[in-house]
Every structure is written in structure tokens, then in C-alpha cells.
């Protein structure tokens, strides 16, 4: 019997209380939680027992760079934060749930446990209204 780590549980509970679109991934980068504002913005859902890989997420969102060019696997914001262990800020273009192209500023940071382990990735997506 293994539940989620306490850092992920607390982050999920915080994200569920906020109006900012937030995605939460586990320590391997698998998407494990999407809060309601993010569901509404991106049209992405993930069940309590489901996960979505970084590539699957990028594919579902048709994620590209801010200039419209495709992103390599290592350029995906989540992947970059996971590899570097640091905050990543990147402008990206995605396909929204209503089919529109959206420009988003992604702020992605790792969750580091008290014993120094990377146990998750938090992704905040800020809509850039005047692009496009």
C-alpha cells in the first residue's frame, strides 16, 4: 500500500483551492493532477488513478515554442525543469480546449522534498492575451 508522497498531496490540495491553472506531475514527470482552472483552459483531464506522460501531454496540447516551431522532447518545460532541477520559464503555444491557439507563459518548478529528492513538478500556465 503506497499512497502519493506528502509533498504531492499538499500541492494538489493547494492547487485545488487556487484559480491559477496548475498541472502537477510526479517525480518522473508523469502528469498526475490538473486543477479545474487548468482543465478549463487546456481541456486536459487526468483521473485520480491515471497518469499522462510528458510527451502525451505535449501531443494533446499540440505544444510548440512561442515562435510556433515544434519543441524537442528536452525543450518541453516540464522536461527541462525535471532535467535541470530548477525553475523554467518559457513561452509556449498550445491548442486550447475550444480549438483556439493560445500563447502561454509556462512557469515550471520542481518540488524538492526535505531530504533533497525531486518528488514532483508544478506547472503554472499564464495566458498571454495579446499574442496571436
Amino acid at each position: 500500500m503506497h499512497g502519493r508522497g506528502i509533498e504531492l498531496i499538499l500541492m494538489r490540495q493547494l492547487a485545488s483551492c487556487l484559480s491559477m491553472p496548475i498541472l502537477l506531475s510526479d517525480g518522473r514527470g508523469e502528469l498526475v493532477y490538473v486543477n479545474e482552472p487548468a482543465e478549463q483552459l487546456l481541456g486536459i483531464t487526468v483521473g485520480d488513478s491515471d497518469t499522462l506522460s510528458m510527451q502525451e501531454l505535449a501531443d494533446q496540447l499540440s505544444m510548440r515554442g512561442g515562435n510556433g516551431a515544434p519543441l524537442s522532447h528536452d525543450e518541453l518545460p516540464n522536461r527541462a525543469a525535471l532535467l535541470s532541477g530548477r525553475v523554467v520559464q518559457r513561452r509556449v503555444q498550445v491548442r486550447a480546449s475550444d480549438g483556439r491557439n493560445l500563447w502561454l507563459d509556462a512557469t515550471v518548478f520542481p518540488l524538492i522534498s526535505p531530504v533533497g529528492e525531486s518528488v514532483g513538478i508544478v506547472s503554472l500556465y499564464w495566458e498571454v492575451p495579446d499574442e496571436g
Partner: peptide, 18 residues
Amino acid sequence: ALGLDRLPQNPNWMSGWA
């Protein structure tokens, strides 16, 4: 239940469940 109206349905997301 911090920040929640009810405990999560899925016990994997419940602190202390394991």
C-alpha cells in the same frame, strides 16, 4: 482535509492512508 471540503475519494491522494 487541509484545504478540502471532503477527503479525496481516491485513497492514494489521502495523507496517512498507507
